[in-house]
Design a protein around this nucleic acid. Structure first.
Lengths: 156, 156, 156, 156
DNA sequence: GTGGTCTAGACCACG
DNA sequence: GTGGTCTAGACCACA
């Protein structure tokens, strides 16, 4: 992860999903957030019925406008992923637990893109796989180092 | 590669680089093209001195505006990747063969993104690696099957 | 129609859909617009493939912000009613011609509300029907008077 | 009335006004309630001097916050429709029995909106009228069927 | 010219 | 406190 990311949520002992945006990315911020929420739902990090961080807090933590967060949430609501309740934080819908199949399927598009790029780069599948292995290890290490505590208990 | 892609180049006996764009993608077409050219250069598919297809032809084949192709080339020229010569097609610069290190490095950002997503999806590195293996195999198979004619050999 | 409405589109000989917003209404402007577009599609006033007025023009004519128009269109796109094409005006989708059944069904919710209110007002169905008849006549008259020409030919 | 409605009042032998709110509606609940009370007053279902259900009871029956009920009542009080007396339930004011003319006038705005929508849908006044007739019949039937007990007589 | 993204801030509705 | 709506204006991407 060479690009700078701004993080929000789940710090310290708090056990919640982490939200990050890559400012440098060309992908609109609200889309980064929306797909991130979907991944957190797919992973179980966000369960149906869970409340999301408030728009204001996220906007503040991530350093983006309230409207941008709102837009992300609105997109997710239009896709049936979140539900609105008057005057309450948004909540993960329980009607549509996983609309794109199991968690693993949400990763496929990115990997397909990687495969396409690897092919254009003239890399063999083996080379591509090995590089991914390296990248995964590096990420894992970084993560492990970062949180010295056993990752915050799952069911706090 | 579930999304529809429009292809151009490397047909018949001609063994040249293949250009494709995903209309549905949110990534600007000119950027898709520019990064694709860079990958072809990194892979050696396009060597320094090689001529690129004409703007008109690419625009026609890919079904996009000439402006869009121009913009991609313009971007590459401004990065020193292509050079323009009076009334001639653009050629690959030999001054800056690989500005991002070996080919493998151009794949890293996408894989880092995949790793980040895998982590958010709660997948283990092993699961992510396995899925990538599947995807690479599928892509390889598809490619092999597709080109019955001895056109451009599958990079491997 | 006692409330003031700001109109846009389809003036003079131009035969296009008319867009209006009621400023005084509590219904958000973008929702007023979105449901209006749906009605125009259901009526055939807007056919699949037709382009909508540009965001800027509508915003200007209706005296609202560009973002507000954009939000209405975005909502319609998320419902599959409009489709976006790079750098072109939005267009009525042909994939989902009428997702709520025939035109008449789009009127039902409002009439159900009216029926509920009539009942609470202690009106008999006959009284309610008669009042609706009066209102329809009034509207019809007003419309006829307004456009002295034969309403602009349907298939211009 | 396809939307779910939560009801309160007029149960058992008690013959009083019925209050309902549509949770899913975008219209604020307190406004739904306030306009409903006005209709009940216009219909005579609530006569000047009649007491309204207590805030607590309505809140409980309708499953909304007491604040919301209070807000509705406050609005009505500020409009002179209800009057507050020390420690007693609110009663219908006799000063302003029908501030918008006869009952039928309270229905007009909704019917005007329906007429506007019908026009945008390309329906003839005859079609619109017929649909309203159907809707009124359906509502009437449902109501008759629903109340097997000789509770509050259907208004007719 | 088209639409899209984002911001900063004001104001509203609901609890 | 929550989210929603709207604005005015800046900047970007695409034709």
């Amino acid at each position: 992860m060479s690009d700078e990311r701004i993080e929000a949520g789940a710090r310290d002992a708090e056990a919640g999903p982490r939200f990050t945006v890559a400012e440098a990315s060309l992908e609109p911020i609200y889309m980064q957030l929306a797909s991130q929420v979907k991944r957190h739902v797919a992973s179980g990090m966000l369960a149906p019925g869970d409340e999301l961080p408030s728009v204001r807090r996220l906007a503040n933590d991530l350093g983006v406008s309230k409207m941008t967060i709102s837009k992300a949430f609105q997109l997710l609501e239009s896709q049936g992923c979140l539900v609105r309740r008057r005057g309450r934080p948004l909540v993960v819908s329980d009607g549509v637990p996983r609309r794109a199949g199991p968690a693993v399927e949400l990763l496929r598009p990115t990997l397909e893109r990687a495969a396409q790029e690897a092919s254009e780069l003239g890399l063999t599948p083996e080379q591509a796989l090995q590089l991914f292995g390296n990248v995964l290890s590096a990420a894992d290490t970084r993560r492990t180092v970062k949180s010295k505590m056993p990752a915050a208990m799952p069911a706090a």
